[in-house]
Nucleic acid binder design. Structure first.
Length: 314
DNA sequence: AACAAGGTCAACCGCGCAGGA
DNA sequence: CTCCTGCGCGGTTGACCTTGT
């Protein structure tokens, strides 16, 4: 990016297009023009507004930053969950995914995926489009995010109750219990075979088989063991494992990737999942790489923590 | 305090598609 | 049918920020 060029404002290049970061004046000018004339016809807007920007640049600035309904700040566990699910369904269709996360832009989601998810995959030395990674996401990451949704919804149920769609978590035994809500109209995620499946309103309507009215739920499946089963204890135990049973460990949904304990749990689950779904653990390793003993593991995880974790699995 | 390394995210680029002339 | 223009999308870049040494 040649931003240094963009900020030059000598008289001789007054006619040149500006590039780089937007100034407050430019933002005001763009916002004012759009409030007067509306969105769209970006090239015309760029010419008439007095901005020395391309129509493209104006559009991007408006959609990604200035538009009033653009949300700022960390993605909620619900949003992270949806991104994971929708990406597994649609791949890098960022704009399509963004349509299902009100206030979030495709750019933001794309950045989240690249900086958080892909980073995690790099550390584990697996490809994000690989079967192994998909399994990890479905069996490990999503259930934990669901748990986070449950926690956040129970603490803030009052604030989102009115607009929410019910979330249902099957406890894996017999009964179902409502665990929380997703605060978006028309969104629905169900756990089929232990993995969440997202359907938008249109798909729900067109797919009566899935149109149960409930949203996030787990359902039992003989051939798809639950994450809790991988650890040989109940879902509740799994949940507490995920949270505070490691001494000072505290689960932070916004920094899932950075926590050494998180990585440890993730890695162990990976190995177990690989066994349980009946493809060899070697499949979870890229050629010539053992991520149970590589340099990364050695620096990220200490032996005491590993021992504590293995104890919990017994 | 200074520097390096790594992470984040706003912005740019190139490509492809749609619609109109 | 071809060309042109506008627009949107996904990939990439690089400035800025944070964290570690």
């Amino acid at each position: 990016m040649s931003t240094s060029k963009s900020v030059s404002s000598s008289s001789e290049d007054d006619n040149e297009l500006r590039r780089g970061p937007w100034t407050l004046e430019e933002d005001n000018l763009l916002s004012q023009y759009i409030s007067d004339h509306g969105e769209g016809r970006w090239n015309l807007l760029a010419k008439r507004s007095g901005l020395k920007r391309t129509g493209k640049s104006c559009r991007l600035r408006w959609l990604n930053y200035l538009k009033p309904d653009v949300k700022r700040g960390n993605l909620t566990p619900q949003e992270q969950l949806l991104i994971l699910e929708l990406h597994s369904k649609w791949g890098n269709r960022w704009s399509k995914i963004a349509q299902h996360l009100p206030g979030r832009t495709d750019n933001e989601i794309k950045n989240y995926w690249r900086t958080r998810i892909q980073k995690q995959a790099r550390h584990l030395k697996i490809e994000t489009d690989s079967r192994e990674f998909q399994e990890l996401v479905r069996r490990f990451w999503m259930p934990r995010l669901l748990q986070k949704v449950k926690e956040s919804s129970s603490s803030s149920a009052m604030s989102i109750q009115n607009q929410a769609i019910p979330l249902v978590l099957d406890d894996g035994v017999s009964q179902q219990s409502t665990i929380g809500t997703i605060p978006w109209q028309g969104a629905c995620v169900s756990m089929n075979g232990g993995s969440p499946t997202y359907m938008d309103q249109h798909e729900q309507n067109s797919d009566s088989e899935h149109n149960s009215g409930s949203c996030i739920s787990f359902s039992e499946s003989a051939n798809m063991p639950k994450v809790s089963h991988h650890f040989g204890h109940t879902m509740d135990q799994f949940h507490s494992l995920s949270n505070n049973d490691f001494g000072t460990y505290s689960y932070d949904p916004y920094h899932v990737n950075d926590n050494a304990y998180e990585m440890e749990t993730f890695k162990a689950a990976t190995a177990k999942v690989a066994q349980d779904v009946q493809y060899p653990i070697a499949d979870c390793q890229t050629a010539g790489t053992d991520w149970l003993s590589n340099d990364f593991a050695c620096t990220m995880w200490n032996i005491d923590e590993l021992w504590q974790f293995s104890k919990l699995q017994k």
